[in-house]
Deep mutational scan, measured.
Amino acid sequence: MATDAALRRLLRLHRTEIAVAVDSAFPLLHALADHDVVPEDKFQETLHLKEKEGCPQAFHALLSWLLTQDSTAILDFWRVLFKDYNLERYGRLQPILDSFPKDVDLSQPRKGRKPPAVPKALVPPPRLPTKRKASEEARAAAPAALTPRGTASPGSQLKAKPPKKPESSAEQQRLPLGNGIQTMSASVQRAVAMSSGDVPGARGAVEGILIQQVFESGGSKKCIQVGGEFYTPSKFEDSGSGKNKARSSSGPKPLVRAKGAQGAAPGGGEARLGQQGSVPAPLALPSDPQLHQKNEDECAVCRDGGELICCDGCPRAFHLACLSPPLREIPSGTWRCSSCLQATVQEVQPRAEEPRPQEPPVETPLPPGLRSAGEEVRGPPGEPLAGMDTTLVYKHLPAPPSAAPLPGLDSSALHPLLCVGPEGQQNLAPGARCGVCGDGTDVLRCTHCAAAFHWRCHFPAGTSRPGTGLRCRSCSGDVTPAPVEGVLAPSPARLAPGPAKDDTASHEPALH
């Protein structure tokens, strides 16, 4: 009773807030009518008042009428009001819900409408889902798969039609296919003929059939049928067999079959498995989609049935006599038709004709302190090069084509190399640097090759510096006499390219 009084008091307290929050009759008014909170006449009256005075006034009048009803109607109103779709449509209802007392429970059932309790003993237990329907569909599909699609060729003596089998029958139906081979029951999904010589313990000319048996419980189990008994694959494991010639990621696949039913060829011909030897223990289905393919039931050349050999690369099948050149017997292992072999060759040939990528240039590290003349020119003028003790990398590039010797140069053309002071002394051009340390401070000019250098860098042994005729380390061993002091540049003949010694390969005349 306390809860009923509290709900009535809360409705009177929030009546105006609810009326202002509800700006549309749908969905709240319609939901109240659906849950029998508002009768039909009051529903029509509220809609009429909404058209006349507006939605807030109409709902305020409806809530005032609701306060005169019993506690069950008020409880049902609060339940409908706080439904998710009403809270989404009328956003101003959320503060009312947040301020609702926590001790007021809106989930209690309506009085007088409590459903009768059902004894637990009368409640049926839930049924577990079964796979009976899938099993029945598999039974119905198996006879259809064994139905012949056409008439065999005159040369083929193997013609068999499976008798119709009602689904209610649980007995196995067997077809006489000759040579002791028996087909599987209607619940078998796949059958492959297997030679009895590969099964340990088999006697006589009995041949087993590799099947997948579907049981009534819905589970499946792969086994071997020899005669009327089934054997699990673990009985046929043979770890010492060295003649297993397995197909790549293979499961067994029928390579020879008669049109209309699988079996042995007439005249004692023995149908073979995809792999010879003992049956392997793992009978998992292969991951290669080509091995799941269903080959055609007629020859791809003459479009006739009979004894066919199936290609492992495509769905086509052929007569042995229709092949070019014809085959006398079934080859062992994987067999592919000429079209598949030709496609494989065409895929391999473009790969062989692809040009080989060019090898990157060989990189040879230079000892610290040495650099090529090109690196000396590329440096920024007026700045010493940083990191001189790091190992430089010199790339061996292809030799350029031989060019004509340089033409003779006048001494005026070499004027930018040297600057003559007032006393006739050779001065260095701006930006000249030593080729060893890279520093341009207090550098000297070689009178023979006009290269800038430090005496301490080229002659670290402490050799005394002569007063005139300074030469760098590369030119100090040259027998050519030094030019007379005061000459602007060496003779043009000295600039012609010539053979250089091994220790002077990195010091070429550089223009500054």
Rank of each mutant, 00 (worst) to 15 (best):
C55Y: 05
I224D: 08
L273N: 08
Q189I: 02
L87Q: 04
K50M: 04
E237Y: 05
A141Y: 15
S220G: 07
S71T: 11
P254K: 06
R12T: 00
P163K: 14
S107R: 13
D103H: 08
H14F: 05
P154G: 07
L7Y: 02
A191W: 02
L62I: 00
A117D: 02
E237T: 09
L49N: 00
C223W: 01
A265H: 07
A5G: 06
K42N: 10
A258W: 11
G227R: 04
D41W: 05
P252M: 15
A73D: 01
Q189H: 08
R89A: 07
G219I: 14
P254A: 08
V192H: 07
V192G: 07
S187M: 04
F43H: 00
G150T: 06
P125T: 14
P143G: 09
P266V: 09
E237H: 09
R203Q: 12
H48V: 15
D84V: 01
F59A: 02
A261I: 05
T151D: 13
N86G: 01
S220I: 04
P176W: 11
R257P: 09
L62M: 05
I224T: 05
C223G: 07
A33S: 02
A264L: 12
V38C: 04
F100S: 02
P266L: 09
N86R: 01
E207N: 04
G218F: 03
T232C: 05
W78R: 01
P126E: 07
L175N: 03
S239L: 14
R149F: 08
D103A: 03
T232K: 12
P143A: 12
F77W: 00
A121E: 14
H48S: 00
P148S: 13
L158H: 09
L28M: 02
F100A: 03
P39R: 02
W65Y: 00
T46K: 00
G242D: 09
F77P: 00
D84G: 08
R15H: 01
S217Y: 06
S234C: 15
I181L: 06
P56S: 04
K259R: 09
P252G: 02
E88V: 02
Q157I: 08
T147P: 02
L273C: 06
K259Y: 14
R174I: 03
R127A: 03
G251N: 01
L28S: 00
A33F: 03
A246F: 14
V188T: 04
R9K: 00
Q262S: 08
D41K: 00
A258G: 09
L13W: 04
L255F: 14
V188F: 09
G263S: 13
T183W: 06
P119E: 14
K133D: 02
R257F: 07
K243T: 11
P56I: 07
R92C: 04
P56K: 15
R174P: 06
K222T: 02
Q69A: 02
V192E: 05
D34W: 00
K243W: 14
G227K: 03
R113T: 09
R8Y: 00
A191S: 10
R139F: 15
L29Y: 01
T232R: 12
G150W: 15
D70W: 00
Y90L: 02
E167M: 15
S217N: 08
D198E: 13
S24T: 01
L49D: 00
D105H: 06
G180E: 03
E51I: 00
V80A: 01
P129Y: 02
V118E: 11
L32W: 00
P126N: 02
P119W: 15
K42M: 05
A121F: 13
A141W: 12
I96L: 05
P166E: 00
F26V: 01
E137W: 15
L255M: 00
G155M: 15
K159Q: 01
V118G: 09
D76G: 00
R272D: 13
P129L: 02
V123D: 11
G54A: 00
P101H: 12
Y85T: 04
P116Y: 12
C223S: 04
A265Y: 13
L29R: 04
Q94I: 12
L93Y: 00
H30A: 00
K159F: 14
G180T: 08
R110K: 13
V199T: 04
A186K: 06
N179M: 15
Q57F: 03
R12F: 00
T46H: 04
A61M: 05
R174E: 06
K111T: 09
A271H: 15
G269T: 15
K222S: 08
T151M: 04
R9A: 11
S196N: 09
A202F: 04
P101G: 03
A152G: 07
A138M: 15
E40R: 00
S195T: 14
V37A: 01
N179Q: 00
Q212K: 10
M194R: 06
K50H: 04
S156W: 15
Q69R: 12
L11H: 00
T183D: 04
E17S: 01
V226A: 06
L13M: 13
P254H: 09
S99F: 05
A271P: 10
V38F: 01
A25Y: 00
I224V: 05
L11M: 02
K245M: 02
G269L: 14
P126K: 11
